[in-house]
Simulated assay, not measured.
Amino acid sequence: MTTTPPDIAIPLRDLRFHRDGADHPRWWHGGDPVPTAFFNALSCTFPAGEKFFMDSVRHYRRSVDPALQAQIGGFIAQEAVHSREHATFNKLAADSGYNIAKLESRTKRVLDFARTRAREHQLAATCALEHFTAILAQELLATDGRDFDAAPAEAARLWSWHAIEEVEHKAVAFDTFLAVTAHWSAPRRYALRVRAMILATIILMTTMGANMRDLFREDGLRGPRVWLRTMGFLFGRPGILRRVTLPWLSYFRPGFHPWQHDDRTALVRAQKRLGIEAVA
């Protein structure tokens, strides 16, 4: 089985974005409500989602070997900064007139229910959702940030930085899951992670769809036309979800590990492009 490369660092970069008071248009992504709604809807899942990820992995921090403990520490540090910066980003959307609190509460309600499940199930859900964020991040890095060519520079930098760190720590939750279920049979472990991915996919897509619907309604956009445009954005060109379909399916392969897709070259290229190789 592939394992996490030993040269992968998970540094804390205490970066801050959107603190200069610069204008942030309501339709900040090229004046287009569709990509704007997609990334706003996604960002609204991050504050509560990343807290859930941190808590589910932190629970096992003392149950794993020292090397993985150190990676968990890096994971938690990075996710805490992501949560803070996306809360700031979400406030910009709220300041432009969107009811962002409603969208953030939707994610929190879903995760509050998830917290009632067994700890191993929470960790399996984290593995599944971390795979989603990792494969989205891989696509954003693979195109050298072109998905944000129409966005303000600060927004593009925020999302690119987030993508870099999602790739850096993409295997931490998965390695933790493998460690704490090492005494399980392989079929039992496989069944849980596959079931968690199916449920996570349904819940995430349902939440994202509801979030985008609410954002469209606040912009007075209703009916099939806006959803046809949305499907074109997601599955046509640029087709962000179309591009991650095969990587998503890879999760269902027995023996899967996140680093079977080795994107260290794209990672280094993105770090140099943004000038954030060093720890801030």
Rank of each mutant, 00 (worst) to 15 (best):
S43R: 14
F46E: 06
S63Y: 02
R62A: 12
D23N: 08
H29F: 14
T4D: 03
P35L: 12
A9H: 08
R16L: 08
A9Y: 03
P25G: 06
E50Q: 07
V57H: 02
M54H: 08
G31P: 06
A9L: 10
H24R: 02
M54I: 15
F38H: 07
A37C: 03
P47D: 00
G49V: 06
H24E: 01
P5Q: 10
F17A: 01
T3V: 15
M54V: 14
R62I: 00
V57A: 15
F52K: 10
N40P: 02
A41V: 11
L68Y: 14
G21C: 05
G49P: 09
F38V: 10
L12K: 08
R19V: 08
D32E: 01
G30V: 10
H18W: 09
A9F: 05
V64E: 11
H24G: 00
P33T: 07
P35S: 14
A22Q: 14
P33Q: 11
L12P: 05
R13A: 12
P6H: 15
I10D: 03
F53K: 11
C44L: 08
G31M: 09
T3F: 03
N40F: 12
K51Q: 15
E50M: 08
F38M: 00
A22T: 07
D20E: 08
P47R: 12
D55W: 02
R19Y: 11
N40T: 14
D7I: 06
W27F: 09
L68S: 05
V34W: 11
E50R: 14
P11K: 04
D20S: 07
R61W: 04
D14G: 07
G49W: 13
R13V: 00
R26V: 08
R62C: 01
D65N: 05
P6E: 15
P66G: 04
R62Y: 04
A22G: 09
D23V: 10
F39E: 04
A22H: 10
L12Q: 07
P11M: 00
E50F: 05
P6A: 15
P11V: 01
K51V: 13
F38G: 00
P5K: 13
H29L: 04
R62W: 04
P11A: 05
P66D: 14
